[in-house]
Design a protein around this nucleic acid. Structure first.
Lengths: 193, 193
DNA sequence: AGCCAAGAGGACCAGCGGTCCGGATATGGT
DNA sequence: ACCATATCCGGACCGCTGGTCCTCTTGGCT
């Protein structure tokens, strides 16, 4: 397909992305309207929607930009059979928290909120959850690794982290809690009699 | 205080509540506008907002109606010192899941979504979390009961349950997972050497 | 240079939550 | 029974939002 994006289109796309990121950062994701972004980017509203389809598409593009490099590396490392699965899981969770959840919290919240829509979020979630579950299963073949993976990711959801922060916990306390939980998930518990 | 609610006002309040519940049930919370509710209840929009302040107030009132009886009983039982803390926690979680989360999922989602606003939700959360943490601490004094309580409640969040269902799990599978997780949280794990 | 698909842009739209205010009425005092 | 009035009612109205549409422009190929 030779239908390459025209130069002005690509230029505008980049301009929109950087502008949106700045506005979101400055004013909070849900105090910035699509009009705001179009105007600040010096672009018509039609252009904005032509490029990204809708609001969720724009936010998704910003989020993907944040994750694409990380995801490749992190998932490879998580699946690397040459290392202790426990270490791999802990490393993955720590990296997910530090590099994605914390810096991407506002974007993630916005994406989680409209989860009813696009399948992209669900697919991404399932990808992470599947690999995480496999690694957990390596460390603890005896348990429901699948649900434990869900649990760990559940605690990492942006709005839940925000809730915890809202109760007075510091980001660092949340981090410690998440990692402790992950570690305990990886440690075999005796079956209750 | 003789400032009793006038009879017509009370009547309208009841009518609005039952109408809203029906509409939400039939069409899904976020496909029903405040206009819809007012019209279906045979009431002016001004009346609706006068009674409940705003959308979140209405949803909150519906949710409180759903929980008020349950909460009294469940929290008492959770704090009852005469029973095995493990049983109490498991019973509380099961009841919370069966009686609140599952039937109230749509309302809860809507409330969680706008959590930025009212403190009422945060207070309710902290009340439940505090008592749950105390009971967990009785069963396992050695761990961070506080964060474990957060974890259990985190997995019970309505939008997370919806996400799990969206991945193909049945409600019953979610229930099993939640209870298994709770049980494992209540079972001491050996410190990793 | 000339053609034209792709893109630009902003007026426009429908729907939303929420407000306002002139008219109606329930209620307590007489 | 009746009045005075605080309370309440209703729906027109508002500002704002995400999203569409249609005309004009322009980059890129020949």
């Amino acid at each position: 397909m030779t239908v390459r994006e025209r130069a002005d289109a690509a230029h505008n796309r980049r301009k929109i992305l950087v502008t949106a990121q700045r506005l979101f950062q400055d004013s909070g994701v849900d105090h910035v309207s699509m009009d705001d972004i179009a105007q600040a980017a010096g672009v018509g509203k039609g252009t904005l929607f032509r490029r990204f389809g809708n609001r969720e598409g724009l936010i998704g593009a910003l989020f993907q930009q944040l994750t694409e490099d990380w995801q490749q590396e992190a998932l490879d490392q998580l699946a690397d059979p040459g290392e202790d699965p426990r270490e791999r899981v802990l490393g993955f969770v720590a990296s997910l928290f530090d590099d994605i959840v914390v810096p991407g919290r506002p974007l993630l919240r916005a994406l989680e909120r409209d989860s009813g829509g696009s399948h992209a979020n669900l697919e991404r979630y399932l990808l992470w959850q599947g690999l995480l579950a496999r690694a957990i299963a390596e460390a603890r073949p005896d348990t429901d690794a699948d649900f434990l993976a869900h649990t760990v990711l559940g605690v990492l959801r942006a709005d839940f982290v925000d809730l915890l922060v809202g109760t007075g916990m510091s980001i660092d306390a949340v981090r410690t809690g998440v990692l402790t939980l992950t570690a305990s998930v990886l440690t075999a518990a005796p079956e209750p009699g």
